[in-house]
């Protein structure tokens, strides 16, 4: 089964995303910010990374830039969770190497549908 790294500094959002993905049978690991995620991503490889954008220590866009620079993550789908006010963030994220984005608020079903399309 595919493995997913979920990065969000908000515990409730993280819980929801993790619960949803685990419920669908994915193997899920969580990270609380970009720094934490980068550390975890280096320890093993994930099939997909889903990250919040606004986080302390290292934000989602810097994380994506860092990950794309790693050999293991050159082609890995990297998704951003943005808000509707972050239109310019999408462009910034794309430039950093993001695969795509989901706009908050989303519900668990939408999240799962998107993930399924990306990694089957």
């Amino acid at each position: 089964m595919s493995s997913i790294l979920v990065v969000d500094d908000s515990a409730s959002m993280r819980q929801m995303v993790v619960f949803t993905l685990k419920g669908a049978g994915y193997e899920v690991e969580e990270a609380v910010d970009g720094m934490d995620a980068l550390k975890k991503a280096k320890l093993r490889s994930f099939n997909i990374v889903v990250t919040d954008v606004n986080m302390p220590n290292m934000d989602g866009i810097s994380l994506i830039k860092e990950l794309r620079g790693l050999n293991d993550y050159r082609f890995t789908p990297l998704l951003m969770l943005t808000t509707e006010s972050g239109a310019d963030k999408k462009q910034e994220g794309k430039a950093a190497g993001a695969t795509g984005w989901m706009v908050k608020p989303f519900n668990p079903e939408q999240l799962l549908a998107t993930i399924k399309k990306v990694i089957g």
Partner: peptide, 14 residues
């Protein structure tokens, strides 16, 4: 800013 941002995101989601 991050607090406002997270509360908004969460509130909208929930």
């Amino acid at each position: 800013f991050r607090v406002a941002h997270s509360v908004k995101g969460g509130a909208a989601t929930f």
